[in-house]
Design a protein around this nucleic acid. Structure first.
Length: 264
DNA sequence: AAAACAAGCAACCGCCTCTAA
DNA sequence: GTTAGAGGCGGTTGCTTGTTT
């Protein structure tokens, strides 16, 4: 893919907007295509998967999730790709999140162990370590967190959810009639000219050509202010079942619902 | 109030696998 | 059957924010 200049570092709102728009248009497979945001395809994919995907659940891991991570890790060990496998079992959580969580947990354990050794009287470290290598629920990493601490990203807020609008998909339907430059121009115009509240985006379902129905959000607010429906059963693609655990809905149909709820 | 430290998280890198030509 | 490019993954780094001294 020809790129003028590959940007690195933190993503801007403009870039996020473009990325969301293009995923809406082309689905989340054609990263080389989408990479026109002056980012590499890899970078685009990562940003989408770890940050912009509508099914993401933000905020702290729940005790249940933490327990599940420990359980699955004890079950699968460190065999690759365990981050992503575990992530698939945790709707709305990314492998990067799991990875970071695990890393933090390990660091805590290491520190506790150090402290324990220093004190040489505390029995805690050994029990903690065994809990990780064996199937053990005794560990409660959550205990180290402050009570009542809420993440800025926590879902479940009542900001309201904007229903998907019709009138989408004209562009997608006529995708073949537009050159890429036209599409880019349109998106650029929209992102620059409109400063109203964010509109919902219907995400390309990734499986049908007709699925390219979306309306470009006039403006992308800081992603941190986005609210996603925490009950949205997206993001689960269990290799064994391909079903959402909560809803029993097939993954594809979950994803095909495709409406991204973004609020400003 | 300021500095030092710690924790959390976003993003990049390099390697490996998959797929299409 | 081969090869190049794209995607996926785990590891790692560095910045930001929160906490402690």
């Amino acid at each position: 893919m020809v790129q003028q200049e590959v940007r690195k570092g933190p993503w801007t709102e403009q870039e996020d907007f473009k990325l969301v728009s293009f995923v809406g248009l082309f689905g989340d497979r054609r990263w080389d295509f989408i990479a026109k945001v002056n980012r590499t395809g890899k970078s685009c994919r990562l940003r989408w998967v770890n940050y912009l995907h509508p099914g993401l659940k933000r905020g702290k891991m729940t005790p249940q999730e933490e327990r599940l991570v420990l359980e699955l890790h004890s079950k699968w060990g460190n065999r690759s790709p365990w981050w992503s496998r575990i992530a698939r079992k945790l709707p709305g959580r990314t492998d990067n999140e799991i990875k970071n969580y695990w890393r933090t947990l390990m660091r805590k354990k290491a520190q506790e162990k150090k402290r324990g050794e220093a004190a040489s009287s505390s029995p805690t470290p050994s029990s903690v370590d065994s809990s990780i290598s064996s199937n053990n629920h005794a560990v409660d990493p959550h205990a180290s967190k402050k009570a009542g601490e809420e993440s800025f990203y926590d879902t479940g807020g009542d900001n309201g959810v904007i229903a998907a609008t019709q009138d989408q998909g004209q562009k997608g339907d006529q995708q073949g009639l537009f050159s890429m430059d036209d599409i880019w121009k349109d998106i650029d115009n929209m992102s620059e000219e409109n400063n109203t509240t964010l509109q919902p985006v219907s995400v390309y379902d990734g499986h049908s050509e007709e699925g390219c129905n979306f309306s470009c959000p006039p403006q992308v607010p800081s992603p941190s202010s986005w609210e996603y429906s925490s009950s949205d059963p997206l993001w689960v693609m269990d290799e064994e079942s391909l079903f959402c655990p909560l809803s029993e809905e097939p993954y594809f149909s979950c994803y095909a619902q495709g409406t991204v709820f973004l609020t400003g």
